[in-house]
């Protein structure tokens, strides 16, 4: 494991901590897209099927369980917790996320490395993760007030993807990692989707202003 990979995973973990902090202590999920959160549950469920078939390390297994558990927990809070669910910005969370699932299924059936259940589902999870942030970004654009925790959450999620790109560059150069078009291109697309958000996040941070995305 290289430093970029570890930092990427830790940033991912931290993003979830920040979101849980908002949900559990502020008791609010305002500005958080339930659709994006549901897509992440599907991403982790389809990607981590190899929990049952292959062992990599204690770290790998533990992180997979944490991502699965927390993503399901977050969706539970947003849907069923009697206080939290009332703060959900339902009317603004309008992105047609079924379309993203359909698109990823079709793409995974067409473009994959091997045609077996685990490989196609794994590929599907990469395509879906690449676009899963879209409902969240659309919701942010509609939000008049983006609170600090929500902004930080999305920033950390984007930082995690950017660090994974550095991790691939490192593995390619230092560990004889072969070309892996499917995860790399999906990862590049995923990171590129954050470009606009990064720009406004950093700008607001530099000017010490409240984060606001232009509509």
């Amino acid at each position: 494991m290289n430093l970029f990979r570890l930092l990427g995973d830790m940033t991912h973990l931290l993003s979830i901590v920040v979101l849980l902090l908002k949900i559990r202590t502020v008791k609010s999920c305002a500005g958080i897209s339930l659709k994006t959160q549901e897509l992440y549950v599907i991403v982790f469920l389809t990607r981590y099927l190899d929990l049952f078939t292959k062992y990599y390390s204690v770290y790998n297994t533990a992180m997979k369980l944490v991502f699965l558990g927390t993503s399901i927990g977050i969706v539970w809070y947003m849907r069923y917790h009697k206080v939290v669910k009332q703060t959900y910005s339902k009317d603004e969370d309008t992105f047609k996320h079924y379309f993203l699932i359909l698109l990823s299924i079709i793409l995974a059936l067409l473009i994959h490395r091997a045609f077996d259940v685990i490989e196609v589902l794994w590929t599907f999870s990469l395509y879906l993760e690449a676009v899963a942030i879209l409902p969240q970004l659309v919701l942010l654009q509609k939000s008049r007030n983006i609170d600090t925790l929500t902004g930080d959450y999305v920033f950390l999620l984007g930082a995690y993807r950017a660090l994974y790109i550095l991790n691939w560059v490192y593995r390619f150069l230092m560990e004889n990692h072969k070309f892996r078009w499917i995860p790399w291109i999906s990862g590049l697309v995923q990171t590129a989707l954050y470009a606009d958000f990064f720009y406004y996040y950093i700008k607001s941070w530099k000017n010490r202003e409240k984060l606001k995305l232009p509509a």
């Binding site: 990979r5 995973d9 990599y56 790998n60 991502f67 593995r171 072969k178 995860p183």
Partner: peptide
């Protein structure tokens, strides 16, 4: 054989 190179990522 070389498959785990990206499957070991999260």
């Amino acid at each position: 054989k070389e498959q785990p190179q990206s499957h070991d990522e999260l």
